[in-house]
Write a protein that binds this DNA or RNA. Structure first.
Length: 650
DNA sequence: TTTAGGG
DNA sequence: CCCTAAA
């Protein structure tokens, strides 16, 4: 019996499931009403619910205001509309990317230099209202705060209940916000929305860009908080539980999809060998290959690096070019002063800074025996993660849903310095080998049980073909749409689910299920090429001391007993396997043979090299003799030879 | 699992 | 260091 569990390993913590599927308006109302009824209202929930209503009201009022030439409202309107648009997207994104193998959320912070004016935040907060209650835990507190401000200014007097909740929430989040994020205003920054807007933003804006996907434009994802926040938020949010099931369901679907065997898509794979993805073999070795303790540190560092790329703040890295090409062009043009400002900023510092809050590790597919301990499960997961971070993955960049493939283009050329593009920019981790190996692999439960090997579930080739591109994310269609707790039997097919939830412009997604089925998938034997994800062990040159020990051991034991040599001289050196020792001896012999000028690395004392040659000659001869005599036992031979001909100096 | 060798 | 055929 095997316990299988797919693990979404995100450094940012857990992924919070997503939401209801009812029409937006309906969702809003339901969430709101229910919340009130239950008396268990999450602040966000209230805000969210109310937001919908407010937005609707604002929409109509704003439009009338606009016609009247009311400036302030006009601006507001813009914001609102933006919010409304965004409102829907997160959902789509979640639908699509829940489970994406590579997804990151990053944030670009932009601050205005002017803080004296009306603190109208244009933080994109629309998705709050969409996500309803379910998403509150996922919601960035920073965002929440911004939102609160917005409500303060625009609708603060709308509801007592709201105010009440708001206050509560503020208390519970404010401190954290400061600690966890850059909240203070930063000088030298410009508003990302365009210069004229810059004049109006006061608070630092936390523009949250969620990554996005190749499927959508400017789609924003919910903020992925780290564990700590998740928990903290959880206290505020009273009902996080109910939202776990969708995820599970999705997982299950995925699993079903993948579990049949190892698959590969026939069309592209004829000449490719299957790689058993992400199955580090080293961990099977007694000597702990791959990530030995010492290496752990390095890996952990990587993790930290990935996990918290800090210091973000886009302080106006917009080139005039990007500005002129932007939708805000008109606005900018009308405001010479603003343009000048941008220009100055650019001249001063045309950097684009990113704050990558977290990069999610691609989904892992882990399988361990039911009897495994939690500890071993943890280790297994850790191994997998490390294997990925240790070199098995590279970072992909997506802009407006498209993969940016040309590594040589500049950010400006690519459009990454362009503010409006930033919200469609995302980073993702993907297996390095995919580029070379267009193989789709899916873990086979039966074949992996005994090894506890973590794998990347289904990876797809990064190809130009639309089909494969689509496929790339197919395993990630962990659409957690249904809130209904499912027992264990998925009621609908993945395809159905997908199709139902996908929006028209997400064509690629819709194709997924079909593609998956259409492609001639053929089971592939597990026994094939090793995964290219397996990290090569870090090089560890032998020290003179080690060489000494090795030479000494070989002098005594000979060149055919590497295991014994290992035991005798490197017992505690886990990172030195007998194969390593054998290899080292080989190179030592070679080194001793060549001229000193040709040698590289840390010089080995000539004395040692001499001994190497002597021992090598001796044991070679010994071997020959043994071979010649053929009948003499090794033990006997060894003793006699040792006393007489051994080159050992001691 | 080890050895022995090629890559 | 890796990969593997052989033992």
């Amino acid at each position: 019996m095997v316990l299988k569990k797919r693990v979404d390993y995100g450094f940012n913590g857990f992924r919070v499931p997503v939401i209801p599927k009812a029409p937006r308006s309906a969702r809003r109302r339901v969430a709101f009403n229910k919340a009130v009824e239950d008396g268990q209202v999450c602040a966000i929930e209230l805000l969210a619910s109310l937001a919908g209503q407010l937005l609707q009201e604002s929409e109509s009022s704003a439009s009338s205001n606009a016609s009247e030439g009311n400036h302030q409202p006009a601006f507001s309107q813009g914001v609102i509309e933006q919010d409304i648009q965004d409102e829907v997207k997160p959902l789509k994104m979640e639908e699509i990317h829940q489970g994406n193998c590579a997804e990151s959320t990053f944030k670009t912070e932009v601050a205005s230099q002017k803080s004296s004016q009306k603190p109208l935040s244009h933080t994109k907060t629309g998705h709050v209202s969409v996500n309803n209650s379910s998403d509150c835990c996922e919601k960035a507190e920073a965002d929440v705060k911004s939102e609160i401000f917005e409500w303060d200014n625009k609708f603060g007097n709308y509801s007592n209940r709201l105010v009440e909740t708001r206050e509560k929430f503020r208390v519970s989040t404010h401190g954290n916000i400061k600690n966890g994020f850059k909240w203070e205003q930063e000088a030298g920054s410009s508003c990302i929305r365009g210069s004229n807007l810059a004049d109006k933003c006061s608070l630092e804006d936390h523009l949250e860009f969620a990554s996005f996907s190749r499927y959508g434009n400017g789609i924003k994802l919910g903020f992925r908080d780290d564990d700590e926040k998740f928990l903290r938020c959880k206290r505020v949010c009273t009902k996080p539980k109910a939202f776990r099931s969708p995820r599970r369901i999705a997982h299950r679907r995925i699993r079903n999809l993948m579990s049949s065997k190892y698959w590969k898509t026939a069309p592209k794979l004829k000449d490719c060998e299957l790689s058993d993805l992400g199955v580090p073999r080293y961990h099977k070795r007694k000597t702990c290959y791959g990530f030995e303790r010492s290496q752990h540190n390095a890996i952990v560092k990587k993790r930290k690096f990935v996990d918290r790329v800090s210091g973000v703040t886009s302080d106006g890295g917009f080139s005039s070019e990007s500005v002129s090409n932007s939708p805000q062009k008109g606005m900018d043009a009308d405001k010479p002063s603003s343009s000048a400002k941008l220009h100055v900023l650019k001249a001063k510092d045309s950097h684009v800074k990113f704050s990558i809050k977290s990069i999610r590790i691609p989904e892992l597919y882990i399988e361990v025996p039911e009897t495994s301990t939690v500890g071993s499960l943890k280790r297994t997961i850790m191994e997998a993660v490390m294997a990925i971070l240790g070199g098995g993955a590279h970072v992909g960049v997506l802009l407006q849903g498209k993969k940016v493939r040309d590594d040589n283009r500049t950010l400006v050329q690519t459009g990454i310095s362009c503010n409006e593009n930033l919200d469609t920019l995302s980073f993702m981790l993907e297996p390095t080998s995919l580029r070379a190996s267009p193989t789709i692999c899916v873990g086979d439960p039966s074949s992996q049980c005994e090894t506890s090997q973590p794998t990347w579930p289904t990876e797809t080739p990064v190809l130009d073909s639309g089909v494969t591109d689509t496929l790339h994310d197919s395993p990630l269609l962990t659409y957690p749409g249904n809130l209904i707790e499912s027992n264990h039997e998925p009621t609908s097919s993945l395809a159905d689910t997908t199709v139902n939830k996908i929006t028209p412009d997400s064509r690629a997604i819709v194709a997924v299920p079909a593609t998956t089925e259409t492609l001639a998938v053929v089971p592939v034997s597990q026994k094939t090429k090793r995964s290219e994800f397996v990290q090569r062990r870090t090089r560890r040159p032998f020290s003179v001391t080690e060489v000494e020990a090795l030479v000494h051991a070989v002098e005594e034991l000979g060149t055919g007993r590497w295991r014994d040599v290992k035991l005798r001289a490197f017992e505690n050196a886990d990172h030195r396997t007998y194969v390593d020792l054998k290899d080292k001896w080989k190179t030592l012999v070679h080194t001793a043979t060549i001229s000193p000028q040709q040698r590289r690395g840390e010089p080995v004392p000539q004395e040692l090299l001499d001994r190497v040659l002597a021992a090598h000659a001796f044991w070679s001869q010994h071997q020959a003799k043994q071979h010649g005599k053929h009948q003499a036992g090794p033990g006997t031979l060894k003793i006699t030879e040792a006393s007489a001909e051994r080159p050992c100096v001691c």
